[in-house]
């Protein structure tokens, strides 16, 4: 997988390394900005209320 990506990057080794670094940074940014905020509420740390975050009709 990584070997395949490396072989398909253009340029010499230095250019490839630079592009790889940028790719990694972009992926980490996307994870922190979009994927993890979506996934985090699925973890149990958000359940701090006694009515499940809803106004209960009683």
């Amino acid at each position: 997988m990584y070997g395949w990506i490396w072989r398909h990057l253009p340029g010499n080794a230095w250019v490839r390394a630079l592009i790889s670094l940028l790719l990694v940074l972009a992926i980490v940014y996307a994870l922190f900005q979009y994927v993890f905020p979506w996934a985090e509420p699925l973890l149990p740390f958000n359940d701090v209320t006694v009515d499940n975050g809803m106004a209960v009709n009683r």
Binding site: V28, L31, F32, F36, E40, L43
Partner: peptide
Amino acid sequence: LLVVYVLYWT
């Protein structure tokens, strides 16, 4: 990375 996000970044 997820652990870093949950424990630190939030």
